[in-house]
Amino acid sequence: MKDQVIEILQNLTGSDEVGKDLDVNLFESGLLDSMGTVQLLLELQSQCGIDVPVSEFERSEWDTPNKIIAKVENMQ
């Protein structure tokens, strides 16, 4: 699951950095924006089968690869 999320993030950001530093702040570093976020939610839905409504997405809870992995593992 962890690898899957990292792969999604790498594809979305077009950068290997997310795989190297799992605590990088995706929004502050400019790796992810609102558009990328929506893509992330859609990828999680189609690849991992988890449904995250846009309302559930609170930026501060999803801003690093590690936090996203934890969220996904929690929701499965």
Partner: peptide, 15 residues
């Protein structure tokens, strides 16, 4: 505007 208009519109179009 970001959370309730932009993201929802983008979500709708992409989905």
């Amino acid at each position: 505007f970001r959370d309730y208009i932009y993201m929802r519109l983008v979500f709708f179009i992409m989905k």
